[in-house]
């Protein structure tokens, strides 16, 4: 049995304390010529987990109003959210992200709390559109919640009435950035 040398990953192991190191640094192969190189990647567990999480954001299909149509279009053939690993789920138990797409009324408010508490941890909330951000056009109405952040904690605010699919796309990418910066493993430990 010949002794194999493994490729050494430079740079990738150089993670900063805030966990912001990026995966996918240069691979230097040290294997024998002609032999397929077994790839080994060394990185921090946080980064690895975040990499997985960021590329499998399953969002809850929670479309209440106009923004819901743009949410549908974003999942459609042109913008195609699937390519970022973001697919919609019908049940909060299977989702990481609550996209509040549309106006929330007081009658709906309790249900939003319930849905939020049913999401699997760690969970994120994306307030899509002006209504979810601050009540939007309907801020002055007697029955509309002036911003979903008075019911649940919000991670990303996406302005627009309704936001374009490209904007929602960008919001998902920003959420990925946010996830990459998190030290999730530490949070679990204590």
């Amino acid at each position: 049995m010949t002794e194999r040398t493994f490729p050494v990953v430079k740079d990738a192991a150089v993670a900063k304390d805030d966990g912001s190191a990026v995966l996918g640094a240069t691979l230097t192969s040290c294997s024998q010529p002609g032999e397929p190189s077994p790839l080994v990647l060394t990185t921090k567990l946080d980064n690895l987990i975040n990499w997985f999480r960021g590329n499998s954001i399953w969002y809850l299909l929670f479309a209440t109003a106009c923004c819901g149509i743009e949410l549908m279009q974003t999942g459609g053939p042109r913008t195609d959210l699937d390519r970022f690993g973001a697919v919609f789920r019908a049940s909060p138990r299977q989702s990481d992200l609550l996209i509040v797409a549309g106006t929330i009324t007081y009658k709906m408010a309790d249900r939003v709390r319930l849905l939020y508490s049913q999401l699997a941890e760690p969970k994120y909330v994306l307030a899509m559109g002006s209504c979810a951000n601050c009540g939007g056009l309907f801020q002055g109405s007697y029955s509309v919640v002036p911003g979903v952040d008075s019911i649940v904690p919000v991670d990303i605010y996406l302005p627009g009435c309704p936001p374009r699919p490209e904007a929602l796309n960008e919001a998902i990418l920003r959420l990925q950035d946010k996830m990459r910066g998190e030290r999730w493993f530490h949070r679990i430990k204590g």
Partner: peptide, 28 residues
């Protein structure tokens, strides 16, 4: 206010940020 949600603009701006959500009484 309605079910603990501030309804006026002034009250919203003064309200503390929501961090924890307790769903207990909200089962339909």
């Amino acid at each position: 206010e309605y079910h603990g949600i501030p309804t006026t603009r002034e009250a919203v701006l003064q309200a503390p940020r929501v961090e924890k959500v307790s769903p207990a009484q909200h089962e339909p």
